[in-house]
């Protein structure tokens, strides 16, 4: 179980690093990408049961949404992998297709940002295990209150950063080049993307929770 958590944390870390293409430089970006795909692969092997649930017909709404997002993620990952390798200069120069660079660049950009957002949603759909654990351990009302307020603050700030960093514009290719401020430090941009990632996950968790509570009431 601990191994799984480790892989998940590393995967999130590498995913966020992969988003910082410009700040890390192309050479490191290619390595981060390769390691990320290895981690994705291990993640899939460790969660083999997922493939079975996709095929089963009896699924709750939540499971269906999960499966849909997982399938989408898989598809996007393959597209990102192909476009990335097709543009690679350092690690896979023999696979580089120069005539398709422009097309690959746009696919890689849009898919990359969709993966970032959908991975955060994917995390949000599995966040209930984590939240349950915290709830069981925290009994003090004051600590609980602070945690709730903090979560709210993180969400709001994350949403602001989501807009500030123009994530949506890249997802839909309205902007075809990512804006990079070369004066911004790596730590600063890393923390911004981390916060965006966490807040999307938290918002997803709360939205799903709300729907579930509504359903329970109506039943």
């Amino acid at each position: 179980m601990k191994k799984k958590w480790c892989i998940d944390i590393f995967m999130s870390l590498f995913l966020i690093l992969a988003m910082l293409y410009m700040h890390l430089g192309e050479y490191i970006h290619e390595w981060v990408g390769v390691l990320l795909f290895l981690l994705f692969f291990i993640h899939h092997v460790l969660n083999k049961y997922w493939f079975k649930t996709v095929l089963s017909k009896k699924q709750s709404m939540k499971l269906r949404i999960r499966s849909f997002i997982n399938c989408l993620l898989c598809l996007l990952l393959i597209l990102t992998l192909i476009s990335g390798v097709g543009m690679s200069y350092y690690l896979f120069p023999f696979m580089n297709i120069p005539t398709l660079t422009s097309l690959f660049r746009e696919i890689h950009l849009a898919c990359g940002y969709w993966i970032f957002v959908l991975s955060a949603i994917h995390l949000g759909l599995h966040l209930d295990i984590f939240v349950r654990r915290v709830k069981n351990k925290v009994n003090d009302k004051r600590v609980k209150g602070t945690l709730i307020v903090l979560t709210g603050c993180i969400c709001l700030y994350g949403m602001y950063l989501f807009i500030k960093n123009r994530i949506c514009l890249y997802m839909f290719l309205i902007h075809k080049f990512v804006y990079f401020d070369y004066r911004q430090t790596l730590l600063s941009i890393f923390s911004e993307y981390t916060l965006i990632f966490i807040s999307i996950a938290i918002v997803t968790y709360f939205v799903v929770r709300k729907i579930e509570i509504k359903k329970e009431k109506s039943q």
């Binding site: 950063l161 730590l187 911004e192």
Partner: peptide
């Protein structure tokens, strides 16, 4: 993270 995000940008 938040603090570093605020100050360094």
């Amino acid at each position: 993270f938040i603090i570093s995000g605020c100050t360094q940008t």
